[in-house]
Design a protein around this nucleic acid. Sequence first.
DNA 1: TGAAAGTTAACGAAAAGTGTTTAAGCCCAA
DNA 2: TTGGGCTTAAACACTTTTCGTTAACTTTCA
Lengths: 134, 134
Amino acid sequence: MKDGLLTDRQMEVLRYRKQGLTQQQIADIISTSKANVCTIEKSAMENIRRAKETLEFLYTLDATQLCTIPNGTDLFEVPAIVFREAEKINIKVKYDTISLINRLRESKAQCCKARQVCEDIVVYITDQGEIYFG
Amino acid sequence: MKDGLLTDRQMEVLRYRKQGLTQQQIADIISTSKANVCTIEKSAMENIRRAKETLEFLYTLDATQLCTIPNGTDLFEVPAIVFREAEKINIKVKYDTISLINRLRESKAQCCKARQVCEDIVVYITDQGEIYFG
DNA sequence: TGAAAGTTAACGAAAAGTGTTTAAGCCCAA
DNA sequence: TTGGGCTTAAACACTTTTCGTTAACTTTCA
């Protein structure tokens, strides 16, 4: 009813980890196996990932689809594409070239190998020029 | 395995809602009762709230507790308190007076009645001067 | 290489979440 | 007052998640 996604157990493990304890040490403290600590930590991370993805969905709800960056595109060509498409529909993008690349790298790290995009990426834009990658 | 917190059903309803449809209209489209649409929408909102809260927890994991703003404090006194406490521990707050108030209002809207804080609010700070309200 | 740290797989029991229905209720404008 | 839009509660079948165990596997590093 009140709390977030993480269970008490999961928060407990994350806190101890933040303090630098090993899984074995935590296992001793909370009286279980290190394998269990591992799975609890893993599911905590999974929950955090899902929380992020949920909010991303929320953003795309406010946004319209702008274009798709095809697999293999050079990372440094992305801003030009985005700017061109945004201009077509008369929206000014909130970011400059550098920040756009940074935003892409942050939100889609797994899609950026070296200088290339390694997956099709859908670009969303709001009326205010906010950009999301989905 | 892959998706966020929201189920397909929940996303479906949110999308229709964003388009301005009534619960009854959506109920007709997806062939169920309006009461059901209501509960699906409600649980979607609940999931979104939980997603936000989960990420907030993540922030407080990196942060240390700075101080507590007592119930009844004037909203416009909050920044001064935060700046003073941050100075005590030699951390420069990333925000100015106005942005601090805005951040507080955004993250704790339910605690801000008119010009007063209507609940004790714990303030967290990171080494980088990032501020969170918990 | 050896030891400690971490990960994974398979399984079970308990708990929590979801979609539904039905029936009742609230609020507000015509 | 009626009706439309919305909310709520209880109950249900069903699915998913969680925490736990055991045992084997990989990684890291002195």
